[in-house]
Write a protein that binds this DNA or RNA. Structure first.
Length: 317
DNA sequence: AAGAGCAGCAACCGCATGAAT
DNA sequence: TATTCATGCGGTTGCTGCTCT
């Protein structure tokens, strides 16, 4: 059953690519084109896994890459796209010809974050920094990107969320990917809070349950069972249908599809978790620092010198 | 001049999804 | 239908060069 492995991992190189490896990869792709990464290393005479070859090609060797500094226009576009899409680097990169998701991600973390801080803007929420604290009140107002960013962050990065409780699903009307790929959206892309439905869920496999209480809250006032101040809003909102969140497996996806006809709400749990930068876990936000579910404690105990340095930098940037 | 700390970036890791078997 | 794996993505890490003391 199944397929054969993509490569023999014990016979692959790791680390920085040599010039010779680059040349081999370039030559091979020039001759045979992209794709079939599985068989590429062997065919090209490279002791690398296909995944590594793909990454090297996409992020560094591709001829259409635009090397060099980002322009001011690119900066602003990235900021704008990030405010709309959150950390969806591949989608952002798709809007910047010649730039890769990895490059943009790095650039965001090293330059733009600082730039936004210097403007007094929280890079994660795109709200003024001094209003972020005030907004952690009882009701939650959020933009689509913020909700998505947080949800994706919390659901996709479990290791940063040990002991945390997650928003498991966001339900929306249309595909974000389709929307973002529509060229006419750039520059006029606005997100309609009223179209974003946050379905809360304590049990993924229970998502098709007909026994759940059905309340589908509509932004901007997301009525969480746990009232948490997920803070921010972007007032300019028009109508856009948004995202169908990735489901964790095919089964859930089917349920999800079904539920678009019949949305259900289940228990909500939510955590602020954007580790490692400025992570504020729910426990801490409530002043329950000693709680065993506190993700900050996990962070504290697992920090290496280097990661602590990085974390510290991010706080001071 | 030397060491420590910082910044930037390339590459890796792990996960989600969907396709192949 | 279940299993296995390729691919793509986002988060994280490690290395290198630069700056500061």
């Amino acid at each position: 059953m199944g397929r054969s492995p993509c490569c023999e991992k014990e016979h692959t190189n790791k680390g920085a690519w040599t010039k010779e490896e680059d040349e081999r990869l370039i030559n091979y792709i020039k001759l045979h084109g992209e794709g079939c990464w599985r068989s590429l290393p062997k065919a090209a005479g490279l002791l690398r896994c296909g995944k590594s070859c793909r990454l090297r090609w996409i992020n560094y060797l591709r001829p259409d890459l635009k090397r060099g500094n980002f322009t001011e226009e690119e900066d602003e576009l990235i900021i704008k796209l990030h405010s709309l899409l959150g950390n969806k680097w591949s989608l952002i990169a798709a809007r910047l010809p010649g730039r890769t998701d990895n490059e943009i991600k790095n650039y965001w973390n090293t330059h733009i974050k600082r730039k936004l801080y210097s403007r007094g803007i929280d890079p994660q929420t795109h709200r003024p920094l001094n209003s972020a604290a005030a907004a952690t009140a009882t009701t939650t107002t959020t933009t689509a990107s913020a909700a998505l960013s947080n949800c994706w962050s919390s659901s996709n990065n479990n290791k940063n969320n040990k002991g945390s409780i997650n928003v498991s699903k966001i339900e929306t009307h249309n595909s974000l990917a389709q929307f973002v790929q529509a060229p006419e959206c750039i520059g006029s892309m606005k997100i309609c809070n009223s179209n974003i439905k946050v379905r809360t869920d304590s049990s993924a496999e229970d998502s098709n349950s007909s026994s759940g209480v059905t309340t589908e809250e509509v932004c901007p006032e997301i009525n969480l069972e746990l009232s948490i101040g997920l803070s921010y809003h972007q007032p300019q909102v028009s109508s856009i249908n948004f995202i169908k969140q990735k489901q964790s497996n095919h089964h859930q996806q089917q349920h999800h599809h079904d539920q678009q006809q019949q949305p259900q709400q289940q228990n909500l749990a939510y955590v602020f978790s954007e580790a490692p930068t400025k992570a504020v876990c729910f426990c801490c936000s409530l002043g329950l620092r000693s709680n065993h579910t506190c993700s900050c404690r996990v962070m504290e105990t697992s920090l290496t010198a280097d990661s602590f340095s990085r974390y510290y930098r991010s706080l001071n940037s």
